[in-house]
């Protein structure tokens, strides 16, 4: 049975202003969904609200993940369940090396899922750390980032493209079941888009589902999403398969939006 992220009639406000106005969407593992839409349609709000950003107030609807209502959960608890968000603007954090941080995150996740007896097993830890280091090295190389990025402080001094690729490194190591990617492709040159898209493709399979928010159809050329949705004014206004993305590329958003009461905000 596939694990699913079920968003039902979700309403979200930021500082008293309603941004999501009843959004419904289900993403199952094994599926890749893409959400497209003009600026201001609420795409990033959806991503941040799903991850539990404290500024985004849920005023209606529900979000189930693996059948559990996650709206009451802290962001870290959502992560432990297997949800991941690749940030549009990854934060820079001084003094926290990427590798060490990811190891801490990984251990936090394992600590939650394991039914251990609470006794630290040093030998097992050392072995796990060794494997983790190997994997980190491999994933950095997959994303065409130098090995030293593991020791560099989280996103500090990274270029825009390096930050986005580092997000995908994190996603690979944390192995979520459902990943939300918020404009991971924006600000990337064409070669980086290819690298990122290939890395995402590697994760595809029955155990992995993705919700890819993008502004451009470009990245979708490298991995065909199973579903394409168009978002406008806080709702999904049209859904289709990959051909919808191609249609949008050719015709723009206007032909869909003109059928709506409200235009681009």
């Amino acid at each position: 049975m596939a694990n699913a992220l079920e968003i039902r009639d979700l309403r979200v406000s930021v500082e008293g202003k309603e941004i999501l106005k009843g959004l419904t969407l289900t993403v199952k593992t094994g599926e890749v969904h893409s959400i497209m839409g003009p600026n201001g349609s609420g795409k990033s709000t959806l991503a941040l609200a799903l991850m539990g950003h404290p500024k985004y107030e849920v005023t209606g609807g529900e979000v189930l993940f693996k059948g559990q209502n996650i709206l009451e959960l802290e962001p870290d608890e959502r992560a432990w369940l297997g949800l991941f968000l690749a940030f549009q603007y990854p934060l820079e954090i001084q003094g926290v090396p990427l590798g060490r941080f990811l190891w801490a995150a990984k251990k936090a996740q394992l600590g939650q899922s394991e039914t251990s007896n609470g006794k630290p097993d040093k030998k097992a830890d050392a072995k796990a750390l060794g494997e983790f280091r190997k994997e980190l090295k491999a994933k950095l190389s997959l994303l065409k980032l130098d090995e030293v990025f593991g020791q560099r402080y989280l996103n500090v001094g990274f270029s825009g493209g390096e930050k986005k690729r580092a997000e995908i490194v994190q996603m690979h190591l944390l192995k979520p079941q459902i990943a939300i990617m918020d404009e991971t492709d924006s600000g990337l040159d064409i070669d980086s888009v290819r690298v990122v898209a290939e890395a995402i493709n590697q994760l595809r399979g029955p155990e992995f589902g993705a919700l890819i928010i993008t502004h451009y159809q470009r990245i979708l050329n490298f991995f065909r999403p199973d579903y394409v949705h168009v978002m406008a004014d806080g709702r999904i206004v049209r859904s289709g398969d990959y051909s919808l993305a191609q249609e949008l590329e050719a015709k723009g958003y206007d032909w869909i939006l003109n059928g709506q009461e409200q235009g681009v905000s």
């Binding site: 500024k55 003094g95 941080f101 944390l174």
Partner: peptide, 27 residues
């Protein structure tokens, strides 16, 4: 708070996220 949220989204509990930021500040 944005930094805390970022670290939390990776599975660090709020207190641990704050500690990581403080340690990083001092490191």
């Amino acid at each position: 708070e944005e930094q805390i949220f970022y670290l939390q989204s990776r599975g660090l509990e709020r207190e641990r996220a704050k500690r990581a930021i403080v340690e990083g500040f001092l490191t």
